Amino acid sequence: MGLLDSVLGQVLGGVQAQQQAPSGSLGDLGNLAGALGGLLANNGEVGGLGGLISKFEQAGMGDVIGSWIGSGQNAPISGGQLQDVLGGDVISHLSQKLGVHAGALLPMLAALLPTLIDQLTPRGQAPSEGLGNRDELLGSLSSLLQKG
């Protein structure tokens, strides 16, 4: 997972600077990569990108995730809004997986997800087949790094 760690490290470096979070506050990047892979993979916790889009639409925030996927500026989301979208069970599971309190995890996810989804959808639309399973998702992130 070295390449995925590098992508997440670059994104998290900017997020941590924005949030002024202490270094290492989310544990090692391998755990974070695994958690995000589990969240965004087609067979993951929310049913992949399509499931995530559905959750945003059900919460009345389809325009927010649409801005992350489409071209243009990414709309912001707060940790509280993200908790409303994902639900307490998903947040609790991610928190336990990463060994951090949800209060620390939510602002980081709120800053990280828009950039990550934006980078995973470079053509400005969600792939019809989704982002794939966890291994395919890790491959996509590795490809992004090689292009950069």
Rank of each mutant, 00 (worst) to 15 (best):
L138R: 13
V90H: 08
D28N: 15
L120Y: 05
P122W: 08
G27V: 13
G24C: 11
I53G: 02
G70W: 01
Q146V: 14
G50Q: 15
A104H: 08
A111S: 10
G51M: 09
G70M: 02
Q83K: 13
I117F: 04
L39K: 11
G34P: 00
A35H: 07
P122M: 03
L98F: 08
Q10I: 10
D63R: 11
P107Q: 00
W68N: 01
G80M: 03
D5I: 04
Q73W: 06
G79Q: 05
P122C: 10
H101L: 08
D28A: 14
G27E: 12
L32R: 11
A110G: 02
G24H: 13
F56W: 05
P122K: 07
L3A: 09
P127R: 11
G51V: 03
G130F: 03
R123T: 06
L40V: 09
L29S: 11
S23N: 08
L109E: 06
N43P: 04
P114R: 06
L36Y: 06
L109S: 01
Q58Y: 00
G2R: 02
G38L: 13
G66K: 02
D28Q: 12
Q20P: 00
S67M: 02
L109R: 04
I65Q: 02
G103T: 12
L36Q: 08
M1I: 09
V7M: 13
G50I: 07
Q119I: 05
Q81M: 09
P22W: 08
W68T: 07
G9K: 04
Q20M: 01
A59K: 06
N42W: 10
G14M: 06
H101N: 12
L112C: 02
S25H: 11
L94K: 09
A110P: 06
L137K: 09
Q125G: 10
M1P: 11
A33I: 05
A59D: 12
I77Y: 05
I53R: 11
S67H: 07
G79T: 03
L145I: 08
G51I: 09
G99H: 03
Q16V: 14
Q119A: 15
G88C: 00
I117H: 01
G24E: 09
L106F: 04
S78G: 13
G130M: 13
G88K: 05
D28C: 11
V11R: 04
L141D: 00
E136S: 09
G87Q: 09
I69A: 09
S23W: 13
G13Y: 00
S128M: 14
Q83S: 12
G66P: 01
S6V: 13
L138K: 12
W68I: 06
I53K: 12
G9S: 14
G60D: 08
S25N: 14
G30Q: 15
M1H: 10
G50V: 00
G38K: 13
I91L: 07
V7H: 10
A59Q: 02
Q73R: 07
G132A: 10
M108V: 14
Q19N: 06
T115R: 14
G139N: 15
I65R: 03
G124K: 14
L52I: 07
S25W: 04
G130V: 14
L49T: 04
L12V: 04
P76R: 05
E57S: 15
L94W: 13
A41P: 07
D118E: 03
G2Y: 02
G130E: 12
